[in-house]
Design a protein around this nucleic acid. Structure first.
Lengths: 201, 201
DNA sequence: TGGTGACTTGACTGATGAGTCAGTTAGTAA
DNA sequence: TTACTAACTGACTCATCAGTCAAGTCACCA
């Protein structure tokens, strides 16, 4: 259990997946070589093939692993907060693509979109993750409405709007748009929450 | 002039770029082979290399070509309309990723994001196109405010919100989200316009 | 008629990289 | 000590593909 935070039971397998998603984030899905993975883990190409049938399997597993652990980490953080308004603001904060891990995770998401758009086989996985994330927003919104701190919006519609907006802004940040810094992204998102969701005092 | 709609002066070069962006849309940026391009055009790989220094050049030119002609086509359509409200609604309509050409163009956009996020050399091109598209929205909004049919919002902020939202929704459609059909996408976007921009009657 | 150059061809070369496999090592049980 | 096995190694094979090049074709002009 201690060595298997999100469903990977084998230590070496875990090392490979962690190294792989980082490589995907840095170089791109199609620029990752089995030799690169082996080197990053400090092992041989044969070992990678010993644990995974083929390169595609490593890559797809790594996508899943990255998203899964990001989701788990964020859920963990949010669980600490009780107030719906704080939760949503925290969620935005956790999602901002600053340099480092979160930015790398966004890089993986963008690759994931590109792959899922082209390869129908990836869509169920993608949509499952995406649906779970949107559901998390829905629950917070419902909670806030029940608490009386949010306006009585349609939670599903609101979650779709917020998550689409977040994705669109993240693209701008990741592609280095001069108009959209991380700070600007936060402002746009928090303004949206304030104007649409937070009840007038 | 007749054979050069958007800045490609050579007939064969144009054929190659058109075939290439379609292939990128269908197979993905990294799954396009020079031999595929040659076959699609009905020529040899040598010819592709005769007109372009290398494969990367063809691919990047094809990204530019695709976006440029899509932008030109939409501008052409919008120019026909006078009313700012109609223009914005038409713009949304033109951007909906239905099956066919527009969907393929969105597929190319998604690939473009993934590439630009990883290869800084592509960012100026990406940001130039993106900025131009956002400016188009800004001008329509300014026009509408001047006409008195739009509320006095901040045009830049509104354009950023609308375009980010559009991108995020398009991702959901292209990745086959069961929650987000083309119709749903239109509804979310038109609701947004109605609630935020269109002046109360 | 023959020369010139733009364009085209497709067989070839060389590099790259996924996947294989015979052999090694280390751990464990009998 | 021996036997067995899981994990690992890295040199090798083989397919793929970008890019090259010598040999064309064709239009046009002198």
């Amino acid at each position: 259990m201690t060595s298997a935070p999100v469903g990977v039971d084998d230590a070496r397998k875990l090392e490979i997946l962690q190294a792989t998603w980082r490589l995907i984030a840095e170089r791109g899905y199609h620029e990752v070589r089995v030799a690169d993975i082996a080197k990053a883990v400090g092992t041989s190409t044969g070992t990678v093939h010993y644990h995974f049938p083929g390169k595609q399997d490593v890559l797809v597993e790594a996508l899943r692993y990255c998203v899964k652990q990001a989701f788990a980490r964020q859920s963990e953080e949010l669980r600490k907060l009780e107030d719906a308004r704080e939760r949503l603001l925290k969620l935005i904060e956790l999602q901002l693509p600053r340099a480092g891990q979160v930015r790398d995770e966004w890089s993986v998401w963008i690759q994931f979109w590109a792959e899922a758009a082209l390869r129908p086989g990836l869509r169920p996985v993608h949509n499952d993750f995406y649906g779970r994330w949107r559901q998390a927003v829905v629950r917070i919104v419902e909670h806030g409405i029940a608490q009386g701190v949010f306006r009585p919006v349609d939670p599903d519609a609101f979650a779709l709007h917020l998550s689409s907006l977040t994705d669109g802004l993240a693209i701008q940040v990741l592609t280095g748009s001069p108009q959209v810094s991380v700070t600007r992204m936060r402002d746009v998102l928090t303004d949206f929450l304030r104007d649409e969701l937070f009840a007038a005092a």
